[in-house]
Amino acid sequence: MKEEFKVISRFIEEKSRVLDVGCGDGILMEYLSKNKVVDVRGLEISKEKVKKCLSKGLAVIEGDAENDLKQFPDLSFDYVILSQTLQAFMSPENVIENLLRVGKKVIVTIPNFGHWKVRLDLLLKGEMPVTKNLPYQWYNTPNLHMCTIQDFYNFCNNKRVNIYKSISLNGEKVSNITTLNLKYKNLISELGIFLLEK
């Protein structure tokens, strides 16, 4: 399992209700339901992936977060997970608001556009960065709203969203992000994982 999922699953307490938004093939859902005995639901936009999840007996519905989060009542989940999809939404702001409405706690992971390789690409080559976590060209990328860890921090501060925990992932290396090391982590992290609360 991906290092990112291991971090996420450590955030989640046993016997809680979880919604995985953009659950993909349901790998994290399977892990959580087997190892953490959580009651886990998924929302996924790709028909192919939804069928895979349902074939595994997972409670996944086909839909997209921008339209289909509406149907979930306020605070109906203990945790809502959004793994590396925030940047693909038309309105990340609305999605985050809805996640915080539906979940008591929200786990968001973002590919960090502030990583030094990304910065160097643009600085030295003068081209839009293409990396392992961001493998698309500018003309075919689904990522409409890229941000950096620092950006996301500022966003949460402005929106008065509590960042409960924030984790940096650089390859397999896991470390904490604090206000003191934020500038540095923003340079060396490939992924940022945030545990949020309203």
Partner: peptide
């Protein structure tokens, strides 16, 4: 699906 989600039922949905 929406009615079931509103009460937190265990529901899967796909459009084939």
């Amino acid at each position: 699906v929406i009615a079931l989600n509103a009460i937190g039922a265990d529901v899967g949905f796909v459009e084939i």
